[in-house]
Design a protein around this nucleic acid. Structure first.
Lengths: 167, 167
DNA sequence: TGCAATTGCTTTAGGTTTAAACTAATTTTG
DNA sequence: CAAAATTAGTTTAAACCTAAAGCAATTGCA
């Protein structure tokens, strides 16, 4: 029947089997992230002699004055828990982070920024924010809003695809 | 004079000193990339027992039938050259990549996919492309186009800021 | 031509990252 | 309550990654 042909053509137009566009989009997304990340990494090292993972972990802790468990950090930063163990260990060594066993759950370690750790982070964060604004400097307010919206949509789409993975 | 006040207010509206929006945008961009990357990494391991860096390197070589030097790869993948040395070494060991010294420049190493390396990559790439399309599945054609455009603009903006860094 | 600068790659040292196996504490459940 | 399942974190092994130093080959230029 003609209907069959029409259907397949319509479908092809709506949802093509050519996935090249999405692949190119992914590569471009990755390029942007890699560029920014590399730039931030380099500046953090030059200006403050600190690594990006250390900065990221301190950023999480700065937002949690009452401390977080390693699991919390692990989820927020989307990295493995074994990774956090080592990272925290080095930050405790350098005096940026305080670590103690939770009172309510003896498995859990609660970590916080030390006073000096917090002070140091705030200085870095202030510059960091300017770097980021500068890198997005050519985007207008409308661009920023629109990117934000589209990336929000992307985030949901990816999570959906990731959850439904075992199909 | 009144003009002064107006100017400063106008400027504030056009280019605010509040850089929070750009920071949030950066974090969202990073989240999207991390989510997709983690998902791809996991699937590559589960389905093909291959790491993401290996896959990425093979993807570069697949696009260059005549081979590339390590420097080419390093630039394309935006990673350090020392990193590539080790990665290539492992891929040569496993028989996926062929490596020989350039005829025209005895410093340079030219690497290519082996026949079996190419065959294996093609299989992985076909699935990979579907995964990516699936993850962006909730975005319409228009969304994809618009994201592509905005990320292109972002890329240029970041490069500009990175080049002008030593100011 | 000759030599300084550059380029291509490797090596080194140290940190980051993952996945998987493991211990210990807590929670769930029959 | 006791066994089973879950959760928090550590450890291990291997790979990845960077920055910096270094070596060898090539290029630029006076």
């Amino acid at each position: 029947m003609t209907m069959t042909i029409l259907d397949s053509e319509t479908k092809a137009a709506e949802h093509s089997d050519d996935h090249g566009d999405e692949l190119r989009l992914w590569l471009r997304l990755l390029t942007c992230t890699t560029l920014i990340e590399g730039e931030v990494r380099g500046r953090l090292r030059e200006r403050f002699d600190v690594t990006l993972p250390r900065f990221d972990l301190m950023a999480q802790l700065d937002k949690a004055p009452d401390g977080m468990t390693l699991s919390d950090v692990s989820k927020r930063m989307m990295v493995s828990n074994g990774n956090i163990t080592g990272l925290v260990e080095r930050l405790v060594q350098s005096g940026h982070v305080d670590r103690r066993t939770s009172n309510v759950d003896r498995r859990a370690q609660v970590i916080r920024l030390t006073k000096s750790g917090r002070a140091e982070f705030r200085k870095m964060a202030a510059e960091h924010e300017i770097w980021i604004a500068d890198m997005f400097g050519d985007l207008g307010e409308k661009d920023v809003r629109e990117l934000m919206r589209l990336l929000g949509k992307t985030k949901l789409s990816v999570r959906k695809a990731a959850d439904g993975k075992p199909v």
